[in-house]
Amino acid sequence: MRSDYDGQTCSIARTLEVIGERWTMLVLRNVFLGLRRFDEIQRNLGIARNVLADRLGTLVEHGVLEKVPYQERPVRHEYRLTEKGIDLWPVIVSLMQWGDRHAPTPAGPPVLLRHRDCGGAVSRHLTCEACGAALGPRDVRSLPGPGAPPDHPLLVARGAADGG
């Protein structure tokens, strides 16, 4: 693996070796939102197939995603988050919330995060704004927000789940 951060003794630099390539965070966002198959991710992002294959390969190689077969003939795989990948949830949420605050879309946020138990919004500190509970990825639902375009990965994933 080529290292862009040779000679740096830095946890951030080592992290960027795994997730710092262009497209990687959007690939992870899509997997978190339910798009797990190569063709779904590729179609939604409009990313070149070879670039996507490279990004997915790196994420699998580093244990962030795992390839799981969903079809035998021909063999096809989907990509699922490992525990190591799920540990990136706070990073994804922080980037999303930063974008909602500092680079908002005119229609509003494309995704709303809500506490599964009470429906409260997720704070910047990853707690529920309604009940105060500390939240992790399994405690939160992602819902389409007012700024979600029809091709948003959350809506695409829901359509696929509904057979659409």
Rank of each mutant, 00 (worst) to 15 (best):
D54T: 04
M25E: 03
A48F: 04
W89F: 15
Q71V: 03
R49N: 08
I92H: 00
N44W: 10
G7P: 02
K84Q: 11
D54A: 09
R116M: 04
L35D: 10
L154T: 07
C128Q: 13
G164P: 08
E17W: 00
V122S: 04
G46E: 01
M25Q: 09
I47P: 01
R80A: 09
R43W: 05
P137F: 05
S123Q: 01
L154H: 07
T9K: 00
P149H: 03
M25W: 15
G163W: 12
K84T: 12
Q42C: 06
R73P: 02
L154N: 06
P146L: 03
P74S: 00
G46K: 00
D87K: 05
L143C: 11
P149N: 03
H77N: 10
V27K: 02
E66R: 13
H125P: 01
E72M: 09
L26K: 12
R2E: 06
A107W: 06
G85S: 02
R138W: 09
V111T: 06
E21D: 15
C10Y: 05
W98D: 13
T24C: 13
V27E: 14
G159K: 11
E66F: 03
G57P: 12
G34C: 05
D139F: 06
R101N: 02
P153T: 05
P149Q: 12
P146D: 11
R76T: 07
L95Q: 08
L88A: 06
L95F: 05
D54C: 02
R36D: 02
A134I: 11
M1D: 00
D151M: 08
D162Y: 05
W98T: 10
E61T: 13
V91H: 09
G108C: 01
A107E: 15
G34Y: 07
C131T: 14
Y79V: 03
I41Q: 02
W98A: 15
A148K: 03
L26G: 08
P69K: 05
R124Y: 09
D100Y: 14
G136Y: 00
H62D: 14
G7S: 03
W23Q: 13
I19R: 13
F38Y: 11
C131P: 12
N44K: 04
R29G: 05
A103R: 11
D117W: 07
A157H: 08
G136W: 00
R2L: 13
G164Y: 12
L81C: 01
R80S: 12
M96F: 01
V64Y: 13
W89V: 03
T82I: 14
L143R: 07
V60P: 07
L126Q: 05
